[in-house]
Amino acid sequence: MDSLVVLVLCLSCLLLLSLWRQSSGRGKLPPGPTPLPVIGNILQIGIKDISKSLTNLSKVYGPVFTLYFGLKPIVVLHGYEAVKEALIDLGEEFSGRGIFPLAERANRGFGIVFSNGKKWKEIRRFSLMTLRNFGMGKRSIEDRVQEEARCLVEELRKTKASPCDPTFILGCAPCNVICSIIFHKRFDYKDQQFLNLMEKLNENIKILSSPWIQICNNFSPIIDYFPGTHNKLLKNVAFMKSYILEKVKEHQESMDMNNPQDFIDCFLMKMEKEKHNQPSEFTIESLENTAVDLFGAGTETTSTTLRYALLLLLKHPEVTAKVQEEIERVIGRNRSPCMQDRSHMPYTDAVVHEVQRYIDLLPTSLPHAVTCDIKFRNYLIPKGTTILISLTSVLHDNKEFPNPEMFDPHHFLDEGGNFKKSKYFMPFSAGKRICVGEALAGMELFLFLTSILQNFNLKSLVDPKNLDTTPVVNGFASVPPFYQLCFIPV
C-alpha cells in the first residue's frame, strides 16, 4: 500500500510540474494548442506526416506557434517570411542545433551535424575549407563525379535492359564520391566492405524516417530501456565508426604531411598542428563522427533524390523527352556531361530543381535551437528552445509555385524558357546551418541524371499514369515507394 501511495504522489508531482512548466512558459512563447500533461501535443500531431499537421496548425495559430513534445516546448516556423527572418536575418541567433537524443547517444555531441557552439563552428569551418581545397564546386571533385558517372552508366548497362530496382546502384554512385573525398578511394560496386557500408546507410535513412524515431526523440528514456529499431540505428553508426577508425589508422601509418590526399589526411594534419593548443576540438573521436556525418549527409540524401527523380521522369515521359532533346543538342553522344553545360541547359536545370522542390526530401529539416534569449515577432523565446522549420511550407508555397503539388519544371523557367532562380528554393535548409555539401549534391544530381539520360531511355513496367509517387515514409525524410524500371541503351 505504501508503495502505491508513493507512486501516486510521484505521478501527481510530475503532472503538477508539467502543468507549471507549460503555464509559466506560455506567456512568453508564441500561441499554440493546449498541451496535455506529460505528453504535450503529441496526440494532435500525425507522426506519419508531421508536415501536414504543421500546415493545419498554422492555419489556426499563424506562421509562428508553439507545440509541446512531452514536456519540451518547440517553436514552429511556417512559411517563407518566418523562416527567412529566423535563419537568414537572425542567422546567428537561430544557428543552434536542437535536442536530438538519439544523435546524442550516437555521437556524444561530436561531428558537424549535431554539434553546437565553438566545437560546431570550428569543425564546420575546417570541413568547408577542406572540401573547397579539394575542389568542391571546382574541377578536381567534378572529375571524381564524372568518373563515377561513367562507372554508374557501365553498371546500368550490365542490367541488359531487364527490369531492376535502382535503389542499390543509385546509392553506390554518391557513396563512392564521398569515399573518394574521405578515403581517396572508390570501391567496386561488388566489394563486400562497400556493400556493408551501403547497407547500413540505407537502413539508417529508413529507420530515421519512421514514426518510432519521432517518439524516441521526444521521450528519450525509451532509447535506453525499450527495444526497437533505434538500437539497430545505433549499432549501424557504431559499425561505421569502427570502419572509419580502421581507415584512420591506415592513414596514420602512411600519411605524407607534405601531400595530403583526402579529408582524413587533412584532419590528422590539423590534429598535429593543434596538439599544443589544448583542449582542441580536433580529436580522433571528432574525426570519426565528422566522417560519419559526411557519409550520412552525402550519400543517402543524394541517392534518395536520384531514385525519386527517375520515378518522376517515368511518370512524366514528356519531361524526359525534353531533357534528352536538350542533352542531344548541347552535349551530344561523344563526350561526358560537365558542369559548364548546365548554363546552356535551362530546361534540365529546371527539372533538377523541380525534383528537389517537389519531393521535399527533408520536410522539417533537422531541429534548430536559439543560442540566446531572443525577441522574435513580439515573442520571447528562451535560450536553448528547439525550433522546428517547415521546409515544406517554403518549397510548396502556392504563391511562389502555382499548383505546388504538381510536378512542373516551369516553376523554374521564365516566359522565355530561361532558368529562373527562386529564393524559396531551400531543399538544403538556409542560413548558417545550410548543408555543407550543397554544391557537391547539386553537381552530382546534374551529372548523374544527364549521364543516365544521355545513355538510356527509361521504360516503366506499368502505365506511367498508374505510377504512385507518394512517399512511403514522410517523417525525417521523404522516401519514394518501391518501383522497377528498364534502362534501355540509346
Rank of each mutant, 00 (worst) to 15 (best):
H276Q: 10
S303C: 10
E288Q: 15
E415D: 14
T305D: 04
F187G: 02
Y379H: 07
K59M: 09
C10I: 14
S3T: 15
D373P: 02
L201A: 06
G416S: 14
R433D: 10
S429P: 05
L361E: 09
G431K: 05
D414K: 06
A86S: 06
F295Q: 01
F65D: 01
G298F: 04
S115V: 06
L485S: 02
N259R: 13
D2L: 14
R26N: 09
P174L: 07
V76A: 04
V352D: 00
S254K: 12
K28Q: 11
I123P: 07
R132W: 07
Y358H: 08
N202G: 09
L294Q: 00
S365Q: 03
V177D: 00
C486L: 06
T283C: 13
Q192E: 12
S286T: 10
L11S: 06
S24R: 14
K249Q: 12
Q324V: 07
N41M: 01
M271D: 04
I39M: 07
K118D: 13
M426C: 10
L453Y: 02
L312I: 06
L43D: 04
P166S: 03
K84C: 11
G70Y: 05
G431N: 06
N176T: 00
L395M: 08
S429W: 03
L57P: 01
I434K: 11
F263E: 03
P404T: 09
D408L: 04
M257G: 12
L485A: 10
Q340E: 15
I327T: 05
S115A: 14
V76E: 00
P402S: 11
D468T: 07
F226T: 06
A350E: 00
M129Y: 09
N259E: 10
D468F: 06
K247S: 09
C13W: 06
G27R: 10
L485D: 00
N258M: 10
E122K: 15
P279W: 15
K432S: 15
R124N: 07
Q146R: 12
F126Y: 11
G25V: 15
C338F: 07
S209L: 08
H396V: 05
T386Q: 10
N107G: 14
E250F: 06
N259V: 07
Y308T: 02
M136V: 13
I88D: 09
T302R: 01
L9E: 00
V472S: 09
V8L: 15
N236K: 03
C13M: 11
F448L: 03
S478P: 09
N176S: 02
P337K: 02
E154C: 04
M129V: 13
N378I: 01
R377P: 00
H344P: 02
G79E: 02
V394G: 11
F425A: 06
Q146L: 09
S280L: 08
G27S: 12
C172P: 02
P427R: 13
F407E: 02
N398G: 12
H316N: 11
A430T: 14
P317T: 09
I74K: 03
K315D: 02
G228T: 05
G296S: 13
N398T: 12
M136S: 12
Q278M: 07
P279G: 15
V370D: 00
N204F: 06
T302P: 15
F401Y: 15
I223E: 03
Y61F: 10
S3R: 01
E199V: 09
I207T: 07
V75H: 00
K275C: 07
